[in-house]
Amino acid sequence: MTSGQMVLGMQFSGGYGAAPGAWRLPGANLNSYTDTDQFVRYAQAAERGKIQLLFIADTPVLDVDLDHHAPHHMIDPLLILTVLARETERIGLVTTASTTFTEPYSLARQFKALDVISHGRAGWNAVTTSDPAAARTSARRYSRSWAATDWHTSRVISSQCDHDRPLFLGSRSLGETSAYGNCRT
């Protein structure tokens, strides 16, 4: 049974909106894609407007000609979301992260940090990076994706601490991930 309620999300882009030439408009902030204060203002306005989550798409390749176009993506989305986590209270914070180009442990560590800093408001759009320029560099992208999502969800987020035993997080519960993303428990 559904509640009949809609979840509203808002996508942040490079700071200029979706119009390709918006950066050329009079009064446009030419540093918009790096202006964290601007993103804080946008996020706070979205939260006041009852938006439930912010989404930042990302790709590990430069996908525009910077001679003629502004970047599609802002500076590092995890860092932007970490800033937003401290400046907002309820809104969800979601970004894309490539399992093709980031080691499973690094992804898990980064998203766990955002989850802790945001008090449980972090979300991850796990992708294998289908962009031809990025994808051709890794033939093992799907096995790495599995390993990264497995490591993130079952090992790090479900960490258990026990005050009664001298055990913070048993190393046997973590498993081992090879450099190629093959997870072994």
Rank of each mutant, 00 (worst) to 15 (best):
Thr149Tyr: 00
Glu47Ile: 12
Ser145Gln: 10
Pro60Lys: 05
Gln110Leu: 09
Asp115Asn: 14
Pro132Thr: 01
His152Cys: 13
Tyr142Gly: 05
Thr59Ser: 11
Glu87Ile: 00
Arg155Ile: 12
Met74His: 14
Trp146Leu: 14
Ser138Ile: 04
Thr99His: 07
Thr99Leu: 05
Arg86Asn: 08
Glu47Gly: 09
Ala139Glu: 15
Ala97Lys: 06
Gln110Ile: 02
His73Leu: 04
Phe101Ala: 04
Ala134Asn: 04
Glu47Tyr: 07
Lys112Val: 04
Leu107Ile: 15
Thr102Glu: 06
Leu167Phe: 13
Glu103His: 14
Pro77Met: 05
Thr96Met: 02
Ala134His: 02
Thr149Asp: 01
Val61Gln: 13
Gly92Cys: 10
Glu103Phe: 07
Thr82Glu: 04
Tyr105Met: 11
Ser118Trp: 09
Arg86Phe: 00
Pro104Gly: 08
Asp67Val: 10
Arg109Gly: 07
His119Phe: 02
Ser130Gln: 02
Arg144Ala: 12
Ser118Thr: 14
Ala97Asp: 05
Ala113Asn: 11
Asp67Gly: 13
Phe111Asp: 09
Thr100Lys: 07
Gly92Ser: 03
Ala108Cys: 09
His73Val: 08
Arg144Trp: 04
Ala135Pro: 01
Thr137Asp: 08
Ser98Phe: 06
Glu47Gln: 02
Ser98Trp: 08
Thr88Pro: 05
Ala57Ser: 14
Arg155Gly: 08
Ser143Ile: 13
Thr99Pro: 10
Gly123Ser: 03
Ile56Glu: 02
Met74Ile: 14
Trp146Val: 13
Arg140Cys: 12
Arg90Val: 05
Thr100Tyr: 00
Leu78Phe: 10
Ser98Val: 03
Ile75Phe: 14
Cys161Thr: 12
Leu79Ser: 15
Asp58Thr: 09
Arg165Lys: 11
Ala113Leu: 08
Pro71Gly: 00
Arg136Glu: 13
Thr88Met: 05
Ala57Val: 03
Gly92Trp: 11
Lys50Cys: 05
Ala108Lys: 01
Leu93Val: 11
Lys50Glu: 09
Thr137Phe: 15
Ile51Cys: 09
Arg144Pro: 06
